[in-house]
Design a protein around this nucleic acid. Sequence first.
DNA 1: CGATTTTGATAATACGTATTATCACCGACT
DNA 2: AGTCGGTGATAATACGTATTATCAAAATCG
Lengths: 350, 350
Amino acid sequence: MSRAVNGRVTQKQIAELAGVSQATVSLVLNGRTDEGIRIPEETRARVLRVIEETKYVADPSARRLAGADNRILGVFTYEPAFPTRSLDFYTPLLAGIEAGAEKLGSDLLLFTSTPVVDGRRQLFHEQNRLLLADGVLLLGVEMDSHELERLVEGGYRVVAVGRRETPGIPYVGIDYSSATRSLVSRALDLGHERVFYHRVGSEGESVRDRLEGVRMGTADRAVAIESRIGTLATVADDWAAIRAFAPTLLVVESPDVASALYEAAERDGVDVPGELSIVVLGSSPRLTPDDVDFTRLNPPRAELGERAVHLLSRILDPDQSPSDLDMRSLLACTIIDGATLAAPSSEGTK
Amino acid sequence: MSRAVNGRVTQKQIAELAGVSQATVSLVLNGRTDEGIRIPEETRARVLRVIEETKYVADPSARRLAGADNRILGVFTYEPAFPTRSLDFYTPLLAGIEAGAEKLGSDLLLFTSTPVVDGRRQLFHEQNRLLLADGVLLLGVEMDSHELERLVEGGYRVVAVGRRETPGIPYVGIDYSSATRSLVSRALDLGHERVFYHRVGSEGESVRDRLEGVRMGTADRAVAIESRIGTLATVADDWAAIRAFAPTLLVVESPDVASALYEAAERDGVDVPGELSIVVLGSSPRLTPDDVDFTRLNPPRAELGERAVHLLSRILDPDQSPSDLDMRSLLACTIIDGATLAAPSSEGTK
DNA sequence: CGATTTTGATAATACGTATTATCACCGACT
DNA sequence: AGTCGGTGATAATACGTATTATCAAAATCG
């Protein structure tokens, strides 16, 4: 009748109004019709009517405490998700995750509260809200293996977006290794014999997978290959090193670096792909693609996000028990033909 | 001692280990040192040590149920937040919101579960999780006034991002009206006398504010003005209508439409701003701004998001009671000079 | 030394929901 | 009439934390 102090309607009040007990209200709400539970149509209807009239909504905290699930998926990003820096990386993933969550009828809890230590967020801290979520998605290039292990030990339901080597962590990743190998093979088939590989420093699994792909692609081939680790900041030096080596094929891991190197080439009057072919091991999902049309890998990031949600939902569903195979899967990564790969000329850059 | 079934540590277990009661653990955890509560340093230290050792974290649901707050801010977007369509609009807002939440140590709960009816999400539904959040931020161009009222009635703590006319709804908005007026005035000061105003159909407050600004900017001026409502899809027809009217100044509400109209002008050989000046009542926060450098409004969206979080946090803080003035404020919107506004030539487009 | 105050800590309770064991009742059957 | 099976519903309890009223023991006082 009279609402509680905070204005909210509870099952108890519904019960009074409908002339039944709180337990009955709960049973009706959850549509329980199991063997042993009997509620005649008339009563059920009466309760439902009151629920309708009072605009009752269940308190998720109480539900959770009583053991029901919450339809909340946690999302943890190791870097802030929205600032422009990481936008290209996270946005397509989040788009997929959002779509997946919407299909499931789940909300997303973004753990933005975690204190930043050494430029990276700390998953565990005094007041973390991990428990509110039925399960958690983990995003980021590199993850702290200790934290991952602690998650597994703690019995949290977790899915990583991207391949992880930490045992016991289910993931959906992208098969960078195979895709990189094919891309490199395709280039070498054109006749390239001097290859320069520009890498980024990160230790993440996806980075290692690409390295592995380059290795496999160049194995058993008579090519001279040099590699160098650099970033956007070191691009000038990197370009000097590349010119010194005078390759006919340049394999670049980072799309951003690739753009910068392309500009450097343009400035120096090096014709791409006439004198120098460039292939890139990733894509930048910019909205206005006035960028160079690189020959490149095209990781299906949005699909990755959606698949990760799907896997998590299967893990959470007590009726399902995903096989080990399902728990750790890789999505195929397509290759975009682009305009920066051609057969080598006789001379190379110099 | 032995952990609970689900592997989690509770205050009760901490209590056993430390040889105290659950109540004491709670008091220590919350650092209560009020008058009437006394815990000697020794006991406090002992409890804290056990907490440290067991890696205890409080269950947020239980906290919430017991009346404590959760440090969770709800975020409701009336359209999906991440798909590329709405990306330009929401992303800077979300970036600001994320930054604000991080400062506060709050997590963000994205209500992605709400069923979509008529292309828009429905805030209230059977199992909404509004209660989990301490307060809610509302984003979107148009909002259902009924739902807003219901939120206020329900006693939910809410802040809208963008001005709202619904009574009782606190907001942080952008002063589109003044900014539009100055922009239009500035253009008219250059001598323009034939003005075409291209609007979008939306009924949102921010759209009306711009309309109001155009009205104020053109009032008491001897100008011929025509206006038309259109979208990206109708741009061809719109352009035809514009040519027929032959204005020297084109005021365009939507950045996207502006780009399309600019292209149409280019195709038709109409010089901008030589023959036709264009001013735009908004900005598109693209990452690669190879776009036309329009003379335009530059709404401070990221700041808007952060300010909205800040306001909400003040509303939630029991020690503060924001004044009515603080509850409904507008941020100044700057004007970017750009390259598409000049004095009119003698002829106009034709 | 008895009375009073202070100290340290706890028992009890509330929060709102889900679940299980139990109960009262009624009609049918022997 | 007494027994039985089925029906409709409820009382009791658990979940984990925060808060308040209460209590025993120790310290201080007259």
